[in-house]
Write a protein that binds this DNA or RNA. Structure first.
Lengths: 206, 206
DNA sequence: CTATGTGAATGATTTCACAGCT
DNA sequence: AGCTGTGAAATCATTCACATAG
């Protein structure tokens, strides 16, 4: 498959979100222009993004909302459910376990880990905090698809190495460092401090 | 000032993080190559990023760690402290109030809001949850620089309109929609669902 | 007559490669 | 001799504009 830009994939997720709103409202068809307005882009961009994967619209008419939504779910690989582990039961980690936004597209948080003996055994949202040391064994019995890392930076790389060895192929990383992983492993970074700094830059230069 | 790419600004934040590690370790100088390795990019990229703002290095030697760190703080506007309000005291909002990573570069969470009468008046991390209805009055008395929006999508645009009218120029948006704001207002989006979907796409296509 | 799909043109970002300081 | 700073080249992403299908 042809290499698709990160930015394109992110826009596709966004379009899917809008399509699902339209679906709920019972809207039957939508134009590239309507999706573009919602997404803060242009109709040409929308059509180009979609064109990498096929032609899903009807000329003169637009796109069928349910059909395009379904195609996008396919493209994004949202047909299956993903088993997610949250590593690090600090404030953010605990909040993620409660976060409902994950379930909608099949991301199911099945376990929560920490290395602090004071936390291990306690519960968050019905999920027992497990010992990080046992993570390889747990995964062997009960595999996970995605690990969300919410540990201090100092612990993150070692954990990733262990998890990669245990077969985990996807990471959402909140730790403020660049993780080193093999080519067949996907990492996305979320850095709140970095977003705030980008805001700071934006505020300064206007 | 020349328009700088978003991606450049984000890398500068990343370089600053590495420089601060080097500072703590007492490392005196660093090469573009060393920063590049840490940041998962190339030395040419590092030098190009810096070159938009000046020439901070010594040929044959590299960059002085404290000096470059200081320059980057300047460039990113991190010389001042920012007053931050968190809007929405759900799981994520409450976690953000506890999040220590903000303080380091001068982002100070000074208030927390919700519109749920059951939550208003309760405390998180010593911060009373205030009534969203009173936010304009609060800001008039005690301005904020940045609003972090952690509300449902349905409430977000109306809140932004009110806050923009009240003079807020920067938003970190967790709500899954594209906010409409005037040109002189900066918005950065954080969407965990979208990151997971990008991971899903990445998993599928390899 | 409307809105898609797509080559071609433009614009932006990254990489190359080397001259110029220290 | 080593590493920066930077034009020029190459690559990548977006926008344009129009032929085409419904």
């Amino acid at each position: 498959m042809r290499k698709i830009a990160e930015s394109t994939v992110r826009r596709l997720s966004l379009y899917l979100r809008f399509l699902e709103e339209f679906e709920e409202q019972g809207v039957a068809t939508v134009s590239s222009e309507a999706l573009a307005t919602r997404g803060g882009t242009t109709s040409a961009q929308v059509r180009k993004d979609l064109s990498f994967f096929g032609s899903f619209g009807k000329r003169g008419l637009g796109y069928s909302v349910p059909e395009l939504a379904s195609r996008l779910r396919d493209i994004l690989g949202l047909g299956k459910t993903y088993r997610v582990a949250v590593i690090g039961a600090g404030n953010i980690g605990a909040a993620l376990v409660h976060f409902r936004g994950f379930e909608k597209h099949g991301f199911h948080v099945i376990s929560l880990y920490d290395n602090d003996p004071k936390k291990i055994g306690r519960k968050h949202n019905g999920l027992v905090i497990r010992d990080q040391l046992g993570i390889e064994g747990d995964i062997a019995r009960d595999p996970i698809d995605i690990a969300i890392l919410v540990t201090p930076a100092s612990a993150a790389q070692e954990l990733v190495d262990r998890l990669v060895k245990a077969g985990v192929k996807a990471f959402l990383n909140f730790a403020p460092l660049q993780l080193r992983v093999p080519d067949d492993v996907v990492v996305k970074n979320v850095s709140l401090a970095l977003e705030l700094e980008a805001l700071s830059y934006g505020l300064r230069n206007r």
